[in-house]
Nucleic acid binder design. Structure first.
Lengths: 340, 340
DNA sequence: TTGTACGCGTTATCAC
DNA sequence: GTGATAACGCGTACAA
């Protein structure tokens, strides 16, 4: 009776001489089932090459098997790392990953997201920073009734809906490391306004300076938007300061690469004339010259845990996925003691 | 009668006082429909906030609205660019993008892909290089009855199932440019065996050398696998050659960045002591120091066109999407005349 | 342990 | 133009 060439559950039932409910039980591994019957049905399934239709399943179960990744992150490597972590968590399950970029700048961003959630009704969505830091977005998901987990730089939500890293602590430690090396004039390249990660990282930086009794003049602060180019521009401003900073902490690696670029353009040696520290530990950090000292952000692990939270059976209370991830300092060659 | 809180087509029909088929006609913009009836139904749809259920649609239409991206590309930026192009093409349509990485090395790669296609039954899949260059993969799609479009470095398939770039020509031109600058000892860092792109690019390189009457000793050829690290290792071997090459063409940017890294490690100046040319024009090309002369590969545009081919109505013969895309040389600062 | 009847939300057929 | 009715493929009460 199959029109599309694909065998259906009915075909299996007919050939096996059972009802389709029995076949359904085999598929869903119902415990109460005769071993002999199960074997026969499984043999027919294999023989016919039967594959359950996910659309029909989705309709009958009133839920589908799509996990959305909602993001507006400018960093390709970061997005890929998150996808990697999600796919690890989804591997072997019946879920698929659908990727949904949204435009942070757009006035209709919330509407676009709602539109997506209403039309597609994914089983759940993973919210990546920076859009994950927007409470309105989380609320929109909740209102529509879509499960979500947020990734971020601070616990912005309940543990079962949040996976966070300790950016503030990690940056405080990284900055303390610079101070230990003897640096006193340390510049900061901050992230974009409105990014919680930018706020946390800057906070950690300022705390470390305060602990070290070091002042932070306005001339040693510049903001970027996490892109290489913005790091370049910000570094140019910082390097014009008199006296020049002997070290710069950049709130992500991309911008730190821009800092190194800017230093080289004006003939400064890194780390001889300028120490640089980044954040993220994306591949670019190891690939610039000199290799960049940076904070490793375990974004793929976070995405993996977040996804497992998302698809976890709310009933079955197995092992809880962690909600807090530690970022650690990776020491490479871009930091040295100041030369003066 | 709605259990999930979502209004269904039945609710709309009841409130509007029409049959659900009429509502269906409104949704699907059937031309034969009373204007007055249509207006009333549309008002009710808006009032109730009705959104058609894509799962039910998929079941009734016997097709879903998922476009798969099948890839095994090691370059994050390239994958992101492809996703970007796909999403541009999908924007405003009812299609969603599902991303499906596969493991090229795995012996079960073909089985895994078939498994995905059979279970998910996407409307179509976009095959990214290098997996797109595998004819067995294309055949697997065809056998399962899944539409596909391949991206690649040569026309490997019929135009409606292929989007290609002219890698060979572009590399020939890039190499000719090096020769024009006066280089005679030019090293090659090839791509992985089995990559069609690697073969085409190497072919273009060899053709240019042949045209210039320049020999290519074994000591000036090394193979990489498109990663930074492999470029680093390959460059170390090439730079050990005596006499040393004055220029190196690398089959992609990542490896070219590794070349620059290796040169700097042994104190060589780029481009003073060594000229370097890459391929792809990913952001890393502009961000290394010195900025990398490279071939711009219009991968996002290719992905966009490929996706439009995929979702094009086979009946309606509108404007054909192009199948061939031109890669062009981008001149930056990593090339100079040889100093000797 | 297994089968029957029906519902999920939509589209297609074929009358009116 | 519009409306009953039957698919689409699978899951679930409830009965046997």
């Amino acid at each position: 009776m199959q029109r599309t060439g694909q065998p259906t559950i009915n075909d299996v039932a007919r050939v096996a001489g059972v009802s389709k409910k029995t076949v359904s039980r085999v598929i869903n591994r119902s415990p109460l089932l005769g071993g002999e019957t199960r074997a026969r049905v499984e043999a027919v399934i294999a023989e016919l090459g039967y594959v359950p239709n996910p659309q029909a399943r989705a309709l009958a179960l009133r839920r589908n098997f799509l996990i959305g990744l909602v993001h507006d992150n400018p960093n390709a490597q970061t997005v890929m790392n998150v996808q990697q972590g999600m796919l690890e968590a989804l591997h072997g399950t019946e879920f698929e990953m659908v990727v949904r970029p949204i435009d942070r700048g757009s006035a209709t961003m919330l509407e676009d997201l709602k539109h997506f959630l209403e039309r597609q009704r994914p089983y759940g969505v993973l919210l990546m920073p920076p859009v994950s830091e927007n409470d309105l977005v989380a609320r929109a998901c909740a209102e529509i009734g879509c499960r979500y987990v947020r990734m971020g730089s601070a616990m912005l939500d309940a543990p079962e809906r949040m996976v966070a890293s300790n950016d503030r602590d990690a940056v405080r430690a990284a900055t303390a490391y610079l101070i230990d090396q003897g640096h006193r004039r340390i510049g900061l390249i901050g992230g974009p306004h409105g990014f919680r990660s930018a706020r946390e990282r800057r906070g950690g930086f300022e705390e470390a300076l305060a602990q070290g009794g070091i002042s932070l003049p306005r001339s040693l602060i510049a903001d970027g938007n996490y892109t290489f180019e913005s790091g370049l521009v910000a570094a140019e401003r910082l390097l014009d300061a008199v006296p020049r900073p002997t070290a710069i902490f950049s709130c992500n690696d991309e911008m730190a690469a821009g800092v190194i670029h800017a230093a080289r353009q004006r003939g400064l040696d890194v780390p001889g004339d300028l120490s640089v520290v980044g954040f993220d530990d994306t591949p670019i950090a190891a690939h610039v010259w000199p290799p960049l000292t940076t904070v490793r952000w375990p974004i793929a692990s976070m995405a993996r845990s977040a996804t497992l939270k998302l698809i976890a059976d709310p009933e079955a209370d197995g092992v809880e996925e962690p909600s807090l991830f530690l970022s650690t300092l990776i020491r490479r060659a871009s930091v040295a003691a100041p030369s003066d």
